[in-house]
Design a protein around this nucleic acid. Structure first.
Lengths: 201, 201
DNA sequence: CAGGGAGGTTAGCGGTCGTTAACCTGGAGG
DNA sequence: CCTCCAGGTTAACGACCGCTAACCTCCCTG
């Protein structure tokens, strides 16, 4: 056991660099030779670790979707465990988790809604199902907090707030943006404000 | 004169279909043969109208950026013309214009922040400059309405609201979404709420 | 110390893609 | 009526790309 912070494996290096390159230039815009070069091996050496270029993208997208969903489920369970936390606190927790992810894994967030259609049917269905579960989980929390919101409106609002939170890659003109904590707090306030305004409140 | 609603020219057909295809499958994911097929001619026939595939993308992106910017300038001028319209009304006008665009030209909105890096240097610089002007114009209006917002925070807020408004393609699961007017109004309220929350208000 | 698998390498194949070349055609204009 | 050009066509070229094949090395293990 203890695969904790054990020096990243080759596979992980490859995935990380592939994610960065895919996000920068698009799935079709990156060649396997470039991905190989980014980790110091070259070209076909990648096939010792992955079945193909598609498999890398699939693993990335499935991984993101699973990680978002399980994180959200965990946060929701924690809240319910304390015997009915205030709905605002639950929503705050979801928002915080999403922001952490968007700020720490920018390339993945970019891929997440940009390259989904490049997947093979089976993988795409899986990813979409995970994404849908994630959205529905948010919708439930939002509607608990704003009961006057109809379900379609709540779903639209959730998608829009994702758009807001996922805008972080655009803020990333290297360097100068405030600091991480400040950005996170600003995004958090805006997300809450957007939901509040979506309802009648 | 009077090139009003004169049956769309071939060039316009091509641009429209190319925008749709680029948005669906990415610039590198679409072949010239497919673009040709989409307008009923095939493959190299496109070269009678465009210098190349890059030129189509460039024209699309420059067109979008110019159209957004000139629209916003017009709205701002109208407001100032009436001798100092309330800042809220100016912001509402900007938001409304952006939403109209996002709802009516979804493929273009998608391309706008997704395929910018596939342009040749000169075109990319031009597009970025237009985008920057557009952002700065919003930043000015937002800061006039919320003077307590610092410039970096205002700029971040503007980018985030763009993320929110540009999320429309994700709402577009064919058919069932509310109606256009309802969606527009929801997005408008959320954008205003997000800005208000960004400031201390 | 034999051997074998994990993880590389380079060469090259087959397919696709953007683009050019060469040719064709219908209809407007002198 | 001849001409010519705008706007198509098909063929083909060269580049590139994903992937496989064949081979080579460590290094770990019995």
């Amino acid at each position: 056991m203890a695969t904790r912070t054990d020096a990243p494996t080759r596979r992980e290096q490859i995935l990380k660099e592939a994610a960065r390159l895919f996000a920068e230039r698009g799935f079709h815009g990156v060649g396997v030779d470039e991905i190989g070069a980014a980790v110091g091996i070259s070209g076909p050496g990648l096939y010792r670790h992955f079945a193909g270029k598609d498999a890398m993208l699939a693993e990335l997208l499935v991984g993101i979707s699973e990680s978002l969903l399980t994180g959200a489920k965990r946060r929701l369970a924690e809240a319910d465990g304390v015997g009915g936390t205030a709905p605002e606190a639950v929503l705050d927790s979801l928002i915080e988790g999403h922001i952490d992810f968007a700020l720490d894994d920018r390339p993945l967030i970019t891929l997440h809604d940009r390259e989904l259609d490049r997947l093979r049917d089976a993988d795409r269905k899986l990813v979409r199902q995970l994404q849908r579960q994630y959205v529905e989980l948010w919708v439930g929390v939002v509607r608990r907090l704003y009961p006057d919101l109809g379900e379609p409106a709540a779903r639209s609002a959730v998608h829009s707030v994702f758009g807001l939170l996922n805008s972080t890659p655009h803020l990333t003109r290297p360097g100068s943006l405030p600091d991480r904590a400040g950005t996170a707090e600003l995004l958090h306030r805006m997300a809450r404000g957007a939901f509040a305004a979506a309802s009648g409140a």
